[in-house]
Design a protein around this nucleic acid. Structure first.
Lengths: 304, 304
DNA sequence: TCAATAGTGTCTATTAGACAGTATACC
DNA sequence: GGTATACTGTCTAATAGACACTATTGA
């Protein structure tokens, strides 16, 4: 940015203006990042020839200090004055997972006034997708414990209602998070009101068992985004190892979308995104499956 | 949030902890909102029987003080300590356009360290779509002038390049903004690097003529989002008056997407989103066109 | 009558869903 | 041989692109 020689109403040039500018003259909110770190894991096989099932997992930290001490929350922390928001997110990611070569994207910024009892906190959420193989988790510094929670997302109620000059849609989503013996859950209400031309979506936490702050809302949002992007981008491959079978890939889609897919159609759709390898699975108790890898020449449409 | 009777490492309960918590102990960034307020206007008709052309317009404010005094920038301002980020956006919108019943959505939060020479500023951008009819613009308080700028978006170069273990895509976008005799322009470079599983998109401003701060980048991002959402949601109707013809609607699509559409396919696709009225255009110099209105029963897929 | 737009019909290509049918390992 | 998965073929339905064709007005 070039310096500006114009003088403002007080007769100051840009550099004079900046010299007298006092940033401490009003109260500022704090800014944090919240990380939604997802991965997919294999569960135990029920029997030697069955495929192992996949589970979508989310990393949570047990809060070791106030506020919401003892509850589980998204990893995250304050954005430092001299780092960008993205750098803060990468730093948190590294602190929690010990890796930094991962896919990460910004989700949404949560700006309500009373999100945190300490002070006014605006939080910018990021979603990271990591492949289980490259992972070696450790608890963050201010956390008693960290855990990968299995994620379940269920729409328990859906309503549509005509109102004056528009429509109101309501959806109740139950989110269940489980890790060893710990089970957390939340009920999030999504309301979409359309009145005339105004359309507004609001999220409200009706119940939050063991999940700190307003993080249930953020988790709900992230799962929706993940599901949507799964369908029109190639982000899945961030959850996969270097080589994978198409059945595994399909399982990952199914566990994230929460519904079964037809193999034939799935393979057709996925075909241009992957390339064959010469390797096959072994000792499966059934027909071996070919390994594929991501085809980087695949052209995704521009995102977002 | 319930108070917590647990004691932390210092032996404090939650309420004791909050009492001794000092939020002023470290330096904080400022948070602002930047508003991308779009509308579509009719240009003069070239001849009595031609249709008038549509133009996509964006509201910009001429900066009346440092920094970037004299340049044009997105309307916006600081988020106050006791208002939510969304409230701040609505407030700015009201200050600029004098209306508050409009469509608005959060776009992205820009968190680089040196975005603003005054101090560290994190900016949360919002897009608002308004219909020209309900509009009566006035300049904001700290602005010398406000103007609706015609928006042109042109991809001037596109490159794909194989790199070790991945792909690099580069796109140069030229944005031109014009209002009366003022013409602003910017060249934004978009780089998408895909190395192994890591995928990153970065935006860089190569040239910015008359556009303040890093706003050219934000404008580029907003236009991309607007284009994408046009295709899979019903946001167009926020840019339309209560009643409109399908040709007008198609024109709006065309001017935003920057390419012509085939009428037959367009009508088929749009059909379930609109409902007929009994009114027709008059004195057009050609066959009259039926007016339609938005059908609020149309079910958009869940957004984002 | 004709310029200019409004609106429809239909052929084709592509894609998603459904499901049957074949292939192949390992116990 | 039987089980469980891998993978293909094909019918159908839905949708998008292309383009020709008909309809309707005001000057």
């Amino acid at each position: 940015m070039k310096q500006n020689e114009l003088k403002n109403q007080d007769g100051l040039t840009e550099s004079e203006f900046l010299q007298q500018y006092d940033p401490s003259s009003y109260q500022r909110p704090s800014v944090t990042v919240d990380m939604l770190i997802f991965t997919v894991t294999d569960e135990e096989r029920a029997n030697y020839r069955k495929l192992s099932e996949k589970t979508l997992k989310l990393l949570l930290i047990k809060r070791g200090d106030h506020p919401d001490m003892g509850q589980w929350a998204l990893p995250g922390g304050f954005v430092r004055f001299k780092e960008s928001v993205e750098e803060a997110a990468l730093r948190e990611l590294r602190e929690e997972t010990n890796i930094d070569q991962v896919y990460m994207e910004q989700l949404y910024t949560w700006g309500d006034v009373n999100r945190d009892p300490r002070t006014r906190v605006i939080s910018c959420s990021y979603m990271a997708l990591v492949d289980r193989g490259s992972l070696n988790v450790q608890a963050g510094d201010d956390a008693v414990d960290a855990g990968w929670f299995g994620v379940e997302y269920e729409v328990v109620q859906e309503q549509r209602q005509l109102i004056a000059d528009g429509l109101r849609r309501e959806k109740l989503v139950k989110i269940t998070l489980s890790h060893e013996t710990v089970q957390l859950s939340a009920l999030v209400k999504l309301v979409e009101i359309r009145e005339g031309r105004v359309c507004k979506v609001e999220r409200e936490i009706l119940e939050s068992r063991g999940i700190g702050f307003d993080h249930a809302k953020i988790i709900e949002y992230a799962i929706e985004r993940l599901r949507n992007k799964l369908e029109y981008t190639d982000i899945v491959f961030n959850l996969m190892p270097e080589a994978f079978t198409l059945s595994e890939l399909q399982q990952v889609y199914e566990v994230i979308l929460g519904r079964p897919l037809l193999a034939a159609a799935f393979r057709r759709k996925i075909a241009p995104m992957v390339e064959e390898t010469k390797r096959f699975t072994k000792n499966a108790g059934h027909r071996p499956s070919r390994f594929y890898r991501f085809n980087p020449l695949w052209l995704s449409r521009e995102q977002e």
